[in-house]
Design a protein around this nucleic acid. Structure first.
Length: 590
RNA sequence: GGACCUGUGGUGCAGCCUGGAGUGCACGCCGGCCUGUCAAGCCGGAGGGCGCGGGUUCAAAUCCCGUCAGGUCCGCCA
């Protein structure tokens, strides 16, 4: 982390920061301010106070008694001196010195905190959030917030250096139904009408391209009213990027530069390169579009082995497997749990084979399905998976996408490590499909968003075989987390019309939903492309955290509430009336 | 909408499976002692009725049902 230069440490109330008092200050009279981290009294002649600020802790020695308690805010004046022989504390960065002959001024008293302001106490998250201002005093949280600031700073510097212009876009936007559920802001001046908070500045930044900004970026708040997870909050921040007269490679280069800079700023080490793989390859090898490249255990295709098989369970278009080294020791109940998990994920079932050493020294299979296998299938399975005695082979037979995704998830369940654990393995995943399945009316669903440019090689199949069409959309992945996504946008009306037609969006619909964008495009739209990087996720990984809540100052709980403020809360009747709203009682629960 | 885990003094946990007086541990808190500690030490003390509501039972923190809150996940997140 970037240290604040020394002279800035001083204010009119202090000369030094606690964690920066060192041997070079010996002999100086100093004044420090902070919170009482610890008090150790040794009778009427000697007391120690550990004083804490955001830089660390310094020991203050008082020749007498002190009238302070934990978390009192105090100012201490004293003389920096080396600690007496044998009393240095190697655990503390300031442990070589102490402030001697201290006088203490209480700036604010404090009740005992609801929990200790130390990293090593593990406190219930509700309690932490209710008293977040205390939680944030802890060194780990201080470091996380400062790391986030450093990441933001590095991203901004990289974008500035590359000629990008920071432009702020509105938080009060127009509803454009599609995609994530939007937060609604009722209008006071137009009863019955509402703004929405943007799920991203997507359309605004495209308009900025039409406006000739050329290269735009913003550290943008995005808001989505969808269920929360460890890596998802209602509101989150993106490095939002858009550039004109560029292709996909240009965008990947811009964003790589920024992300690698941020990594260097956060970790002190600049990653080598970011590898690129196609979406099809990611699915095929790892069963997911956000592959965790820190470990192998890639998917194995057993379809050739079981082509025309008599094993009923394997009578599916695709038979795939993963191998868990040493997994033969998994108990039957553990395997049952895995089977349940596979079903939860959409598989019809899960077949397992323990690889055992037979009497004759050759590898055999231990499985309820083993007796249904032919000799050829048995040896084919072993050969294809390269599994040996002690290993466990898990097989899913289903449609291609289902088999891959289920095994891809099991792979992470079984062998995955916390996302924040090194090494950091970045990947660009490119050539996403243009469409992902079909909706209730049978129309293809846009995989990214409806302004994504189809892959030029596939454009002629847009109408005839839409599901085979690739798009110029791409994701950035780090250790199995999606860090962000982007695409080359459609800037030509004719192609946009064709895509809308395939999506089943009529001209009238398109006009009512995105009319302002399509209208803008009629006035001269440059070819443009962009990206957005999730800053919460990026920072969490650098911070060694597995939940983005740990790098957000005031996050919401999984049910979307804030234990500190009590949000969300009922509005006062007068507020509702101003907005032309009437609250409907919550439906009675059974 | 669904699955699973958790809920016991201020904090963290054990007790629950196999009901028998809230019983215990660590930290913190309050008071006293203590001139070199630093997760200070020693002595003493206060503080909870086991998330909430039902039920079973002679008896419930413990068993059953429901509910609320937190977490992880599925759905959802163009």
């Amino acid at each position: 982390m970037t240290a604040i230069p020394g002279p800035l440490d001083a204010t009119s109330m202090r000369t030094h920061l606690c964690g920066r008092v060192g041997t070079s200050d010996v002999g100086d009279s100093v004044r420090v301010c902070g919170w009482v981290a610890k008090r150790r009294e040794h009778g009427e002649h000697l007391a120690f106070i550990d004083l804490r600020d955001h830089t660390g802790i310094v020991q203050c020695v008082v020749p007498g008694t002190v009238d302070v308690r934990s978390e009192y805010v105090i100012a201490v004046e004293g003389v920096v001196r080396p600690r007496p022989e044998g009393t240095a504390n190697p655990e503390l960065p300031t442990g070589e010195v102490e402030l001697g002959e201290c006088t203490v001024t209480v700036l604010a008293s404090a009740e005992p905190p609801p929990f200790a302001v130390e990293d090593r106490v593990d406190v219930d998250e509700t309690t932490r959030l209710r008293h977040r201002y205390v939680d944030l005093r802890r060194p780990r949280m201080q470091a996380n917030l400062r790391l986030r600031a450093a990441v933001n700073g590095a991203l901004r510097a990289a974008m500035d250096r590359q000629g990008f212009v920071e432009v702020e876009t509105p938080l009060l936007w127009a509803p454009t139904p599609e995609g994530a559920r939007e937060f609604v802001v009722p209008s006071r001046l137009h009863h019955g009408s509402s703004y929405v908070l943007p799920q991203s500045p997507q359309l605004a930044k495209q308009l900025l391209m039409v406006a000739g900004i050329d290269r735009y970026y913003q550290i943008a708040r995005c808001l989505r009213d969808e269920d929360l997870r460890a890596d998802r909050q209602f509101e989150f921040s993106q490095l939002d990027v858009e550039a004109s007269f560029v292709n996909q490679d240009d965008v990947l280069a811009f964003v790589s530069e920024a992300v690698l800079d941020a990594a260097e700023a956060a970790t002190g080490q600049r990653p080598g390169t970011i590898e690129t793989m196609t979406w099809a390859e990611a699915i095929d090898r790892f069963g997911t579009d956000k592959p965790d490249l820190r470990f192998g255990m890639e998917l194995v295709d057993l379809s050739p082995v079981f082509e025309g098989t008599g094993v009923k369970a394997f009578g599916a278009p695709c038979v795939r497997a993963i191998v868990l080294r040493g997994g033969a020791t998994l108990t039957r109940s553990r395997l049952d749990t895995l089977t349940d998990r596979a079903r939860t994920l959409g598989a019809k079932g899960l077949a397992w084979f323990r690889v055992v050493e037979g009497d004759d020294g050759t590898a055999g299979l231990d499985s309820p399905l083993d007796r249904f296998l032919s000799d050829g299938e048995r040896s084919g399975l072993l050969a294809a998976t390269a599994a040996g005695p002690g290993d466990l082979v898990l097989v899913v037979a289903d449609e291609y996408r289902v088999a891959c995704s289920v095994l891809g998830q099991l792979r992470v369940d079984l062998a995955g490590r916390p996302v924040s654990e090194g090494p950091y393995r970045y990947a660009w995943v490119v050539d996403f499909p243009m469409f992902d399945g079909v909706d209730a009316s049978g129309n293809p669903v846009a995989a990214h968003h409806p302004f994504t440019m189809p892959h030029p090689d596939d454009l002629d199949r847009l109408e005839s075989d839409p599901t085979s069409v690739r798009s110029q959309a791409y994701d950035l992945v780090l250790n199995g987390w999606e860090l962000g996504s982007g695409s080359v946008r459609i800037h030509r009306g004719d192609i946009q019309s064709r895509v809308f037609a395939v999506l089943g969006i009529t001209d009238e619909e398109a006009e009512s939903r995105f009319g302002f964008l399509l209208g803008a495009f009629r006035y001269g739209a440059p070819p443009h492309a962009g990206f957005a990087v999730g800053i919460d996720r990026l920072t969490a990984i650098f911070a060694g955290e597995d939940s983005i809540r740990e790098v957000i100052a005031f996050p919401k709980t999984q049910s979307g509430s804030d234990p500190m403020t009590g949000a969300p809360k009922a509005l006062a009747p007068g507020t509702l009336a101003d907005l032309g709203l009437r609250a409907v009682p919550a439906p009675a629960r059974a």
